[in-house]
């Protein structure tokens, strides 16, 4: 799949690694060897509002790393780790 996150960039990361409380923007929804996401899962995430340019913030991460509670646009969703790993985000530089 295209839009692979660039690992060395300091501002781009996966939603699964985003620290709670920081507002980031969605840059891509993509599958990788790590998350093994099906096209259905990716489309579902888009339907839920995980779309390019949308503001996203981690509200809460349960001990152990999943699930996480995420604010996307005006909605709140609970995601498991492999789902959050499909979402690349960028933290706007201040």
């Amino acid at each position: 799949m295209n839009n692979e996150p660039i690992p060395c960039s300091p501002t781009i990361s996966l939603l699964s690694d985003l620290p709670p409380g920081i507002t980031a923007r969605v840059t891509a929804i993509s599958s990788s060897a790590k998350n093994k996401a099906t096209p259905q899962l990716l489309r579902r995430l888009s339907e839920l509002g995980f779309l390019r340019g949308e503001a996203v913030r981690v509200l809460r991460r349960i001990a152990g790393g999943e699930p996480i509670a995420v604010r996307i646009g005006g909605s709140t969703f609970a995601l498991r780790r492999h789902e959050a790993e499909c979402i690349s985000v960028e933290i706007p530089q201040p």
């Binding site: 899962l41 839920l48 509670a69 995601l79 498991r80 789902e83």
Partner: peptide, 12 residues
């Protein structure tokens, strides 16, 4: 068989 999904809305 794959991984189970969550993707559940937490309403206001």
């Amino acid at each position: 068989h794959g991984i189970q999904t969550l993707m559940m809305e937490l309403p206001a």
